[in-house]
């Protein structure tokens, strides 16, 4: 593979990571928890698209919308049922519960669909787009375009709307936000809904890129996207996008120039490096403990 196509490949996979990472980063920013089940929500998103498009024969746009809405609802419900009761508990309790939710979703889908991979509907046109002398597959182009659009819209939402302001306030200080008349519960629900909805888009891209889906797909995808979020500085939406793209590139270059067996190791290596050198991530600010 040439250098250029490695870059395009990396950016395309990276775009998918970015879409998933946004969910991690938003939830961490506001609920201060690693939503370990986020990867599984993405998996559910891919399955919803498959069911609505392939099994029910609905148009693509309906399938994708159903997947976004389904994931958003699932995100809200998991928060209400599993995380909300633990809002004031230590991070360990929340972490284990999130892992529990991830096991639950994974095994539920194993029961329903079996462990064998299912062919994801290929609704994009075949062939390649030729652009400035490069050829890009439709999935790659779509992945990149969607990542940019989603990040842009989200930033616009968070920075300019009233609800976005409420989100930022809750992420700063839940108690103070509540005293200012912000409905903290609704704001947290909204965050989970948006994060999971955008994640669903990532799930669709996953299906299109790899054309096979199974109930385990969320585990590694989730961890890598989380690493992307940490790399960019957790809690920072821009950071999640940049982090996702960088992780995608690192992976693509490792596969092309070293070996595919080490691509995961490189990603974990990046995580270790960034946490040891600048734990707050590329865009984060270190906070000093008050004594």
């Amino acid at each position: 593979m040439s250098f250029l196509s490695t870059i395009i490949n990396g950016l395309s996979v990276g775009g998918m990571y970015a879409l998933v990472a946004i969910g991690y980063t938003m939830v961490y920013g506001i609920a201060k928890m690693i939503n370990f089940a986020h990867g599984e929500i993405i998996m559910v998103g891919a399955y919803i698209t498959y069911v609505v498009f392939s099994l029910m024969g609905m148009p693509v746009i309906v399938a994708v919308l159903a997947s976004i809405i389904g994931c958003a609802l699932l995100g809200v419900v998991t928060e209400k049922v599993a995380y909300k009761p633990l809002r004031n508990s230590g991070s360990l309790a929340v972490l284990i519960t999130a892992i529990g939710v991830s096991y639950l979703l994974q095994n539920l889908f194993l029961l329903i669909f079996g462990s064998a991979a299912i062919t994801f509907p290929d609704f994009l046109p075949k062939g390649q787009i030729h652009f400035l002398g490069m050829s890009i597959s439709y999935v790659s182009a779509l992945s990149l375009v969607l990542t940019c659009i989603c990040t842009f819209l989200l930033l616009l939402f968070v920075n300019t709307t009233k609800l976005g302001k409420a989100m930022r306030a809750v992420s700063e200080d839940k108690g103070a936000a509540e005293l200012m008349g912000i409905n903290v519960n609704n704001t947290i629900s909204l965050t989970f809904a948006i994060g999971s909805g955008i994640g669903a888009v990532g799930g669709v891209i996953y299906g299109l890129s790899y054309s096979l889906i199974n109930p385990y797909l969320g585990a590694m995808l989730g961890i890598k996207a989380f690493i992307a979020a940490v790399l960019g500085g957790i809690g920072d939406i821009k950071g999640a996008m940049v982090g996702g793209l960088l992780i995608g590139l690192a992976e693509a270059f490792t596969i092309t120039y070293i070996s595919s067996t080490f691509s995961d190791a490189v990603v974990f290596g990046i995580l270790i490096f960034i946490l040891l050198v600048k734990p707050a991530g590329l865009f984060g600010i270190n906070v000093r403990e008050k004594v």
Binding site: I34, I223, F268, L271, I272
Partner: peptide, 19 residues
């Protein structure tokens, strides 16, 4: 590192050892 960060970095080492 503390809390979640320590958790995730030890997970990363775990996976690297496995690889």
């Amino acid at each position: 590192l503390k809390g979640d960060y320590l958790c995730i970095i030890t997970l990363a080492f775990n996976e690297i050892i496995r690889i």
